[in-house]
């Protein structure tokens, strides 16, 4: 392979993108990073187009104009829903939007490493590649937990548990790129907690109107497991009147509801690992994703897993960007010759 002049490769902007069910993030080699809710809104009809202009909307804007839009959450359930062109288009639009947000110079080439939910990789990697290909010169697609692992330098004898909205993704690292067997995906994740919490609160306070968005914001503010927090009170409205509800037990139960399945899966995956290294993996468990911010979740899992022996569980510093940063690290480290072949 002929060597190419150094400065030529400098010009391409390297980006890492984390495509999530609920949030998508981008980090670029120009130092910029941004995130948006993974919501894409298409103007429904002639009137909407007239009002909003003939364009696609993203993130918060979608919520504002919900009524005039066909709203797509393109990676709901971690997968581009099969056969729906809208989903593929929406992924493409979302990527284009994210790349726009980090402001590349005009005509600057983009080399992107995109992390997608492990389950999506299994099912329709090609669809994802096609959706993205219009926006990047060069492209690699990897599973999201792998991107997190790479970014953290957890390359060998480590386990990443990426607790997102639609899915919790597991990935065991053993010095190679994880195979399908090294990865698992559970639907025990943030959305599941929200459903549980909504159910529990509606049961306890039948007069109060809760909805998914409200309970999600409760969870994001006050989510906890074990006895990290002694009391959670929230303000709600009953017929216009402000009331304070104690939701401590409901919050704990809802947040803990996903953990038995997660602990079981982790134990099962560790158990399948080369016995010689099982204790090393057990001592190198890393939690990522939005739900890793639930208070006490690392301690809870550590206790659950200690059934197998001593173990250590840590939480990534920067859950929102861990995936995108990992993608960027991959995009940066990927040798130029490799990029050229893609």
């Amino acid at each position: 392979m002929p060597k190419v002049k150094g400065n030529k490769q400098e010009k391409a902007l390297r980006v890492g993108i984390d495509l999530g069910t609920s949030r998508s993030a981008i980090a670029a080699s120009n130092g910029k990073r941004r995130w948006v809710q993974s919501l894409v809104g298409w103007p429904k009809d002639f009137v909407a187009r007239k009002m909003l202009g003939d364009r696609v909307l993203f993130g918060d804007e979608v919520n504002e104009h919900r009524l005039s839009l066909e709203v797509v959450r393109p990676l709901a359930h971690g997968v581009i829903k099969s056969g729906t062109e809208r989903d593929e288009e929406s992924v493409a639009e979302l990527i284009g939007h994210l790349i726009g947000l980090i402001e590349p110079r005009p005509r600057q080439k983009i080399y992107a490493a995109v992390g997608v939910p492990a389950e999506a990789l299994k099912v329709n990697k090609q669809a994802i590649r096609e959706a993205i290909s219009g926006y990047a010169e060069k492209l690699i697609v990897v599973s999201e937990p792998f991107a997190v692992a790479y970014g953290m330098g957890a390359l060998d004898n480590a386990m990443i548990i990426d607790m997102g909205a639609g899915t919790t993704d597991f990935c065991i690292m053993h010095g190679t790129m994880p195979s399908v067997d090294d990865q698992r995906s559970l639907t025990a994740a943030g959305d599941y907690i929200d459903q549980q919490l909504l159910g529990l609160l509606t049961e306890r306070y039948p007069d109060t109107d809760f909805n998914m968005n409200i309970v999600r914001s409760f969870k994001e503010k006050h989510g906890f497991v074990g006895d990290t927090i002694s009391q959670v009170e929230v303000e709600a409205r009953i017929e216009g009147r402000a009331v304070v509800h104690d939701i401590t037990n409901e919050m704990r139960r809802a947040c803990e509801s996903i953990l038995p399945a997660i602990a079981e899966t982790a134990m099962d995956m560790i158990a399948r690992f080369d016995p010689e290294y099982q204790d090393q993996v057990r001592n190198n468990i890393i939690l990522a994703g939005g739900c890793s911010q639930i208070a006490g979740i690392d301690t809870y899992l550590m206790e659950a897993l200690s059934e197998m022996g001593p173990c250590r569980v840590s939480v990534v510093d920067d859950p929102l960007y861990a995936g995108a940063r990992g993608g960027l690290a991959l995009a940066r480290d990927m040798p130029y010759e490799y990029w050229m072949d893609m």
Binding site: I140, Y150, L155, G175, T176, M177, M334, Y338, M342
Partner: peptide, 9 residues
């Protein structure tokens, strides 16, 4: 690992 990623892609 980078080589793996490359081959896989």
């Amino acid at each position: 690992i980078l080589r793996d990623v490359y081959r896989d892609n």
